[in-house]
Design a protein around this nucleic acid. Sequence first.
DNA 1: TAAGGGAATTCATCTGATGAATTCTTAAGT
DNA 2: ACTTAAGAATTCATCAGATGAATTCCCTTA
Lengths: 225, 225
Amino acid sequence: MSKIQYHELLEVIETQIKNEEWKYGSRLPTMSELAAKHQVANSTIREVYRALESKGYVAIQQGRGTIVTFDRSMEFTTMNHSSFMELLKITEFRTIIEPSFAALAAREAFKNEIDLITESAEIMRVMAEKNQVTTSEDLRFHRLIVEATHNEYALRVYDNLQEELNRMRAYTKKPGMRERAVHYHQMIANAIANRDSQNAKMLMEAHLQPNSEIAMYELTEKAFK
Amino acid sequence: MSKIQYHELLEVIETQIKNEEWKYGSRLPTMSELAAKHQVANSTIREVYRALESKGYVAIQQGRGTIVTFDRSMEFTTMNHSSFMELLKITEFRTIIEPSFAALAAREAFKNEIDLITESAEIMRVMAEKNQVTTSEDLRFHRLIVEATHNEYALRVYDNLQEELNRMRAYTKKPGMRERAVHYHQMIANAIANRDSQNAKMLMEAHLQPNSEIAMYELTEKAFK
DNA sequence: TAAGGGAATTCATCTGATGAATTCTTAAGT
DNA sequence: ACTTAAGAATTCATCAGATGAATTCCCTTA
């Protein structure tokens, strides 16, 4: 096993901070300590600390040490690297952007793509009927629509969100949600098949709205007591 | 004038990259070059480059050099430091957060704060009548409400957005908008005065909705042809 | 002309030195 | 005992310069 160096080291320490292994305001090991511990030069640790500083995780103070400035409960104010932005990004982004995609798809989709979309809605309906977990089919449905826009750009943006989308699904476990989703998927698929871009857009909006509301509600209630 | 060092250097170079003085994909000066130019040690430049790397502005490649990975036209996909996120942040943030503030203010505001809010709505009405520019009074109104929540946290968040709010006003110059705004301000002030937090929230939502719609519409149309 | 093999370039990491800001310790004075 | 002030120790800031590794450049040779 080769010796741990800059990039790996950065990741390790960043993760530890995010996991709050050092609490907000507490001191990180001194540069020399950490250098000795990991068998690297001081300058390497220094680069790591600078990188963390530039991301806002720590503050380096001459003569004092390096203290943690990251706090999960304050993520809301910092706006950067914050779970609020994550949430805002993922939920609001979808609410804002996917209706446009749906509209575009209604205009641009090829026949076979429309078939796939319709099929996906049907698959999901059957799954829901059998009380099966529909999340992956749900994701597929939305992805198919993005594909059908024939807009590479859109697709790239959307795929960038996959990881977060997966994490997001935890929020969408409300009773009745699945049935609602099935219904909307069918209507959206219909609208696209009918080349009705306006309706596709509106339906997608309505479909995504509650997701956003739920997540945002929970978040704001928490943040502003 | 003292010699330029780490922090200042970081800011200078970051700004230059953001201003696209080096284009996406182009090479930055070598570490030694830059060190010589600014009369600092290589290791200091190295720290700067690492900080930029960790923010996603550059990629450091052994043997090759350091290339710019920041591109304004791609900001949309990277999600960080992007004007899209700026807009999303500011418009959607308001839509999501300010109704909560209004509700909170309705519960928490002191008498004199309610008077100020009511007064602001009235001032704005008069100004609109005289066809004067109402933007600053508009900002004041919203700020007063945030103040009236007595939630330091909320205030801090809100004030962080001032700069962007000012830039935002360019988007809200639609005919009939001002009259609508005046009307809403009055109703919101009323709801708060009546301690009707639910209505305050709903009215604020309705008040902010079109802002968000307009900005987002223009943006998404632009982005996805 | 094409291919191969150094030479030059550029980043990666290390060693170790000096200085600056802060904190800790200790001793003197009240 | 308590306060204060000086010095020691700690910790970051920056520097100079060395070696190694990855890449590119360029010249030689077939």
